[in-house]
Amino acid sequence: MLKVENLQVSYGHREAVHNVSLRVEEGEIVTLVGSNGAGKTTTLKAISGLLRASGGTVSFDGERIDRLAPHQVIERGVVHVPEGRLLFPEMTVLEHLELGALRGRPGSMGFAERLRWVYDLFPVLAERHAQKAGTMSGGQQQMVAIARGLMANPKCLMLDEPSLGLAPIMVDTLADTIKSLHASGITVLLVEQRVDLALRLADRAYVLETGRVVMEEAAHTLLADPRIKTAYLGL
């Protein structure tokens, strides 16, 4: 469904991602793991159109999307929930959700229905719909970020370090949320520092090191192989 081939991305003259190829099939959870600075975020940004690739292709459902602007990528059904959340601190939760729905793919649900669905998923957001995002806790902000992404009715959801800054119980809740989203038919591309968590959720994994894919493997294989974990993932 999502296919990345020989992707190259540079910051100025420095190439951060070299010839990365990966694919995500419909209904999968795929995870992208690797140490700090490996190029995970850069890869996601190139897919979502925030960064322009200097080489290679990205296609989704057979259509090239690597020359599209972010809002056009969202219209195709690929939604990126970014690292650091990138919320609008002075805007309310509800405003985030309204904006999230702007480019939403038409689906079975209308705006009101989708809003109810998101509120069911994150009941605290319903309570706090009039609160400014900047005044919320880290966990709640992550919920706003995911909820904002869900309002666009994604086929493929890319989550970049959703557990960052969350309390341990919140991490478990997050894992449950991801599972239930997957169960509702959303394909997931997950980037996570917590490799254990990621590998438990995922079907397949790509290991990225200094901008290159060094391994592609079924998640449970990686999880079972302690040598690989120490060699590539520093665990």
Partner: peptide, 14 residues
Amino acid sequence: QNPDGAALTGINIG
């Protein structure tokens, strides 16, 4: 408030 966040929310920045 957050240009990249706005782009990833589907706002046509241009």
